[in-house]
Design a protein around this nucleic acid. Structure first.
Length: 397
RNA sequence: GGGUAGAUGCCCGAGUGGCCAAUGGGAACAGACUGUAAAUCUGUCGGCGGGAGCCUACGUAGGUUCGAAUCCUACUCUACCCA
């Protein structure tokens, strides 16, 4: 692959490269570059949004460079203030470890983990003495830290900024020094932190890293950035049908964005597809298939597509609704449907379940069950398909 | 250290002694319509209960009162001004 082709591949799905000329130079050097991505183990699910940068890291990896994945086990004790209007809760050591374990098993669908250098930043940050910290902080000024938009905003809105939060960019920047990064990847919201890394590296007499920024993937709601806490995410470990369904529920306008950031479909093809007069729904089906194929398989994508069409487009009963046992404690007679729904974890409380029934969201074998006071025999329920809302089906047994 | 303002449900925010499980908006959930899109309309939106009703909740802990989100005391936290 020529340098130009490599650059083109690496530029897909990025908003900014600081600077492209530097990146080109580094690629031309023929060296095996050290490409850093820092991850904050605050979430347990790897989402497609997170996958955007992980996939970019994979691109570098496939070009023969060294992927250096930094698990921010130390920095997550601080909590990245990026994009946050509130101080994040600080995690305990146990919570961090649990998250790390879960995250590592998830990213192997994206990266070649065996070839990835995985480092925990406690390795160097945890060893620093207070004197080291003071020396580090003396390299930056308060004004420069406060330039950062999140902080400016919080100051303006008279919201708290805790002292430790302003150390976050320095910690992350110091990671780059410690692992001698050539390139650092990040989401757009990481720009400030990444640039601090460049500055610190220069201060330590190193060649500053190139910063490659990717846009943030919008969540399935089409409004906020995709994040686990907002619940608008697609997880890389989601079941095929679920993943497909979530992909279908995104607004039309963000389809192109999803193709670019979450699939490998060539962009020329995507643009032609979107410009054509094909039914947007079918373009979106293609998108959903691509995504499922990436994290599961072609076959899984195909069957998820079929499931979707029959269940939702043609509104048929799913043939293979998820089986569910009627909890034994409900007894055999006088079964209250609301308790059953709660027992199957399809509603969070009895009141909630009753409300769903009253609003017509609950049906048994296609017949609406709207009366919360109705009682059922176990034998009447077994074998029927319980439907809650549009999405949830359970075959009772 | 001194002063001022403030802390209400997922978020914003109204409420200054009973009519408050708490106005309004957003988010969310459900129904109708659809392409599980968008927009729109409708309903719901602390827990338990078939219901009557009961319980828990307005920063924390006490107190006053027949009765407190509302009054008093102490404490915790936040912002701003002065040092």
């Amino acid at each position: 692959m020529t340098i130009e082709q490599q650059l083109a591949l690496l530029k897909r799905g990025t908003t900014e490269i600081i600077s492209e000329a530097d990146l080109k130079e580094k690629l031309e050097s023929g060296r095996k570059l050290r490409v850093k991505l820092g991850v904050d183990p605050t979430a347990r699910s790897v989402t497609l949004g997170w996958a955007v940068v992980l996939r970019k890291l994979r691109d570098f990896q496939r070009l023969g460079h060294t992927a250096v994945l930094i698990i921010g086990d130390f920095t997550s004790l601080i909590g990245d203030p990026s994009g946050k209007s509130k101080t994040r809760p600080q995690l305990t050591v146990e919570e961090v470890q649990a998250n790390v374990d879960s995250v590592l098993t998830q990213i192997d669908t994206i990266l070649d983990v065996s070839k990835t250098e995985i480092r925990f930043n406690r390795e160097w940050l945890g060893k620093m003495s207070f004197e080291d910290v003071i020396r580090l902080t003396s390299r930056y000024t308060v004004a420069r830290i406060l330039e950062r938009d999140d902080f400016t905003k919080r100051l303006r809105e008279e919201r708290p900024i805790a002292m430790h939060e302003i150390l976050y960019p320095l910690c992350q920047g110091y990671d780059s020094v410690a692992v001698q990064a050539d390139v650092e990847l990040g989401g757009n919201d990481q720009k400030f932190n990444n640039l601090v890394g460049r500055n610190l590296m220069a201060q330590f007499g190193m060649e500053p890293q190139v910063v490659v920024l990717s846009p943030l993937l919008v969540g399935t709601d089409g409004k906020e950035k995709m994040s686990q806490s907002l619940g608008n995410y697609i997880g890389v470990k989601d079941e095929p049908n679920d993943m497909f369904g979530k992909a279908m529920s995104i607004p039309d306008e963000i389809m192109e964005n999803y193709f670019e950031l979450a699939t490998d479909v060539p962009m020329d093809e995507v643009r032609t597809l979107i410009a054509s007069d094909a039914n947007p729904r079918d373009i979106k089906r293609r998108l959903a298939r691509e995504i499922v194929a990436l994290y599961h398989s072609q076959e899984a994508a195909q069957s998820a597509d079929e499931y979707f069409l029959s269940t939702f487009s043609r509104r048929e009963q799913p043939v293979d609704a998820e089986p569910a046992d009627i909890p034994a404690e409900l007894g055999d007679a006088d079964i209250n449907l609301a308790s059953l729904i709660v027992g199957l974890e399809l509603a969070k409380s009895n009141g909630d379940a009753k409300r769903l029934m009253q609003s017509g969201a609950v049906s048994l074998d296609g017949e609406k069950a709207t009366d919360p006071s109705a009682r059922f025999q176990r034998s009447d329920l077994v074998g029927k398909v319980l439907r809650i809302g549009k999405h949830h089906f359970r075959k009772l047994s």
